[in-house]
Design a protein around this nucleic acid. Structure first.
Lengths: 352, 352
DNA sequence: CGTTAAACGTATAGCGCTAAACCTCACGTA
DNA sequence: TACGTGAGGTTTAGCGCTATACGTTTAACG
């Protein structure tokens, strides 16, 4: 049961291997319909599948996209959040639909990145789960690259996909304002450079400022449940009546931490998260949150890499400059996924 | 900035490409230490990385392992549960440490499986997230294959990794018995064939039987939060004082559903889940659960495939017959990962 | 001393595929 | 009649690597 090759098909059809190759790759115009049909029938009958390695070697393209994720020393899972899992799933599905495959690869250093790209001649890269500074330290090579939720390092040719974080922050702020809150806290990893977190905070700031409310109290916390538990006292002591957390896990931890401190949610303090992760519906009270369409994010990332791969690499295009892409284009090379607010128990209901 | 090839290194070192190849592949005995050192220095200096496609084509092995996951029509994420995410992460890390790469691939049909294997000449397969029947319908090809949490279809040469589910069920049962419970319900997808679910139920049954307690009430429910919500009334109406769910998400849903029905947890009904997923610590009351080491599961899966790949394929080895593997061996070709009980609020404390 | 065999290499022949150049013929046209 | 020209192929020449067979030395041994 050796592999069926082009040669086998060619022999059976009585044509040259190039003709079979042309049929398989849809290079019409070089093959008569009759011959094409004959070849196609034999291909189907013999169950011929082209060899990726051979094709890659000869054609100088692999139809392989690397999904680079953080390989943390502590061995925690590559896909650190429900958000990333969902994006990865949609990405794979979209790439699969376009006849591309995904190489899953944990990377920690720039050397890891170089190795993974060189080893398999990856046609493109999707980079997810890293902070802005980590991305910079990865020294992304000159391969079509899409960053998910990270800033494009200066001088790097890459595109990005992000939710409309500022709009999300604004939505959260406006919702809380509508409920009568004026003293609001923001909780998130504001200590690491992150356009995502900054965007959410800026959106909140803008909403509060527009309403003439005081600037938000900022409480620094990592994006984990435990950090939320730890941050709860600071929030409680801040004299605020509401808190907006940069992610749902964090919000869940805060909610729980507040409850443990005897603070009632939402009566004493309202809580808003971000992502509309499953956990937002599991905790009690259920978490109000800003929803982002993670599936759309994954699809957008897929379309972006494929677009970058197919386009002639416009010489000199760098970060910040326009990046053209198939389908989803954006002036600054960034695709912004729309967001929407989901009101649940943790903020109570808007007063009529 | 074309690719650096063996030829480049060979020219610079003044040796043949085969010598460089031998050095790069660690074929000592064919190269003098002096030459090897020279070549290695040049390889490092030039940043040479072997081409995966070329190597695969010539060597008839790709060092590629496919991670096959369910591509459901509804587009839900490939990695359906926190358990799967964690296993996948550990699997990737372990394979990476052994110089192998992971191809992420969603599959729905036997044709998808054949295609993915043939296209990239995958050396091995890890199949996860499918029910026993789905696995059967995938008609796994004769490639070294490891199934995670699924039964090996008859006539198929494959190994499997599972937690010690029966032991887990027993642990849950014994814990509940120790708390004085005698009328216990089991909740899970008992309507689909699954050695995993069956194992957990059997373990519970055994524990109850050993203690002379009545057989458990079985409530059928999918492994989702929503199914848990829906199943709660049946549990409440069952006249039981405790319920053991086959997974934490389900347990969380049940817990919440019980609360909604005015049943107090753990005072009226104690709840136990399985997996020690993060959600078990996020819900309130926090969920008692049976913990399984998902990282060990991922590593075991990696070792198993690599073992199967390296071993001479003992002709005729089929499901159920011994499958030898590197490191983690098992008489029935199944690696059982140990489990442990984690007591939390949802079962109260054991009476002294 | 001839013989043997390690030790250290090199030359050859592909792996399965594709890009690019080349061929061949029928047909229309100046 | 000579001459494009386009359709429908085929031939050639690798892509970058490895398995295999085939040299060379050098040292050991009876």
């Amino acid at each position: 049961m050796a592999r069926v090759t082009l040669k086998d098909i060619a022999a059976e059809a009585g044509v040259s291997v190039m003709t079979v190759s042309n049929v398989v790759n849809g290079n019409s115009g070089r093959v008569s319909p009759a011959t094409a049909e004959l070849v196609e029938r034999i291909v189907a009958a013999r169950g011929y599948v082209p060899s990726g390695p051979a094709r890659s070697l000869a054609a100088r393209r692999t139809r392989l996209v690397g999904l680079l994720l953080p390989a943390r020393a502590d061995g925690t899972s590559l896909l650190g959040s429900a958000h990333d899992v969902s994006v990865a799933g949609a990405l794979e599905a979209a790439l699969r639909a376009r006849d591309h495959h995904v190489m899953l690869r944990g990377v920690a250093t720039a050397a890891d990145v170089r190795d993974s790209v060189a080893r398999w001649s990856l046609d493109g890269l999707v980079v997810m789960g890293f902070t802005d500074d980590e991305v910079r330290s990865l020294e992304l090579p000159a391969v079509p690259t899409v960053l998910v939720d990270a800033a494009v390092p200066p001088g790097t040719r890459a595109a990005a996909v992000r939710a409309d974080d500022a709009d999300g922050g604004r939505l959260a702020g406006e919702h809380l304002l509508a409920l009568g809150h004026r003293r609001v806290a923001f909780c998130g990893p504001t200590d690491v450079r992150s356009q995502v977190v900054d965007g959410r905070l800026d959106g909140l700031r803008a909403a509060l400022a527009d309403a003439g409310a005081p600037a938000p109290l900022v409480v620094v916390a990592n994006t984990t449940y435990e950090a939320g538990l730890a941050a709860a006292p600071a929030v409680a002591a801040g004299g605020v009546t509401a808190v907006f957390a940069s992610a749902d896990v964090l919000a869940a931890g805060i909610e729980r931490g507040l409850a443990a401190a005897g603070v009632r949610v939402p009566d004493d303090v309202a809580v808003v998260g971000f992502d509309d992760a499953e956990i937002a519906r599991y905790v009690s009270p259920t978490l109000s949150t800003v929803a982002q369409d993670t599936a759309a994010k994954g699809r957008a990332a897929a379309e972006l890499v494929l677009g970058l791969i197919d386009d002639e690499p416009g010489a000199g295009a760098v970060a910040g400059s326009p990046t053209r892409s198939r389908g989803v284009a954006a002036d600054d090379g960034v695709v912004h996924i729309g967001v929407s607010f989901v009101a649940r128990e943790s903020t109570g209901t808007v007063r009529a």
